[in-house]
Amino acid sequence: MMRIDIITVVPGLLDGPFSHSILKRAEEKGLATVKVHNLRDYATGKQKQVDDYAFGGGAGMVMMIEPIAKCIQELQSERDYDEIIYLTPDGSTFNQNMANELSLKGNLMMLCGHYKGVDERVRQRFITKEISIGDFVLSGGELAAAVLADAIIRLIPGVLNDETSALTDSFQDGLLAPPVFTRPAEYEGMKVPEILLSGHQAKIEDWRFEQSVRRTQERRPDLMDRKDF
């Protein structure tokens, strides 16, 4: 079973994503589990403070090292982690190859950034991988952690009902997925391509590949620069 531990100051933001759909099914099948840890449980004092003003001044608060270190070290005392991931806008941009690699791991820990980020010493001492889900800023790393967990867990064999489904997703082969159709075969004069109704699987696969290439050229030409056909 894969285990993902997520450290956050806003655990309520993660209630929904892991109680429905594929992620819930993965846990029910015993294939993956996600545990959310409230960072304030590791803080001291009446206020359970987890942030403070930045040395040198400036706007915004910084997440303190002590409660983060305490939480990480407690989890590390219970099991070994393949990666300790920090969700941050200045991390490496998440992609399908990264999801594939992480889906092969056993235990992952994710630290959700908040406020102006974490004390740099957390990154220096504990973090093994820093990931961003795009060139934009969220209020915190919780939604990014949910995105990572979803993208990773769905790749674990047995999670999807059709195990070949994930292999035909966009980006798995460096191309966008081709157009897909279902019943009815005709809707208000709009017909499904005849090739898809032909039953000739080899020709269908050729058509899908051609459509993937065309769609990628039109919508994500930057991906074509990485392909060698």
Rank of each mutant, 00 (worst) to 15 (best):
D5L: 10
D5F: 09
I7C: 05
V9Y: 00
V10G: 00
G12Q: 13
L13Q: 06
L13S: 00
L14W: 00
L14D: 03
G16E: 12
F18W: 09
H20N: 11
S21G: 03
S21Y: 03
I22T: 08
L23A: 06
L23T: 02
E28G: 03
K29I: 08
K29Q: 12
L31F: 08
T33E: 15
V34H: 03
V34R: 00
V36K: 06
H37V: 13
H37C: 12
L39Y: 06
R40Q: 11
D41T: 00
D41W: 02
Y42D: 02
A43L: 10
T44N: 05
G45Y: 01
K46D: 08
K46E: 11
V50G: 04
D51A: 11
D52L: 15
F55M: 14
G56S: 13
G57P: 14
G57M: 14
G58W: 15
A59N: 13
M61I: 13
V62M: 15
M63D: 05
M63Y: 02
M64V: 06
E66D: 08
I68S: 06
A69P: 01
A69Y: 02
K70M: 08
E78R: 06
R79A: 12
D80N: 12
D82E: 14
I84T: 11
T88F: 09
D90M: 12
G91E: 13
S92N: 12
Q96E: 14
Q96R: 12
A99K: 05
N100D: 14
E101N: 13
K105S: 12
G106K: 15
L108F: 09
L108N: 07
L111H: 04
H114Y: 13
K116P: 07
V118H: 04
D119V: 04
D119Q: 06
E120A: 13
R121Y: 07
R123Y: 01
F126E: 09
I127E: 05
K129Y: 08
K129M: 15
K129D: 09
E130Y: 07
S132R: 03
A144D: 08
A144M: 09
A144W: 05
L148Y: 06
A151Y: 04
I152S: 07
I153W: 00
I156Y: 02
P157S: 01
G158W: 01
G158T: 01
V159F: 01
N161G: 13
A166D: 01
A166T: 05
T168I: 02
D169P: 03
Q172L: 00
G174C: 07
G174V: 11
G174K: 03
L175V: 00
L176V: 05
P178D: 08
P178A: 10
V180M: 14
T182L: 03
R183C: 04
P184C: 00
E186M: 02
P193G: 04
I195D: 00
L196W: 00
A202F: 06
A202H: 14
K203F: 06
D206E: 15
D206T: 10
W207N: 04
W207C: 07
R208N: 04
R208G: 03
F209Y: 13
F209L: 15
V213F: 03
R215Q: 12
T216W: 10
Q217K: 15
R219P: 13
D222Y: 11
L223C: 08
L223E: 11
M224A: 10
D225C: 06
R226V: 05
F229K: 09
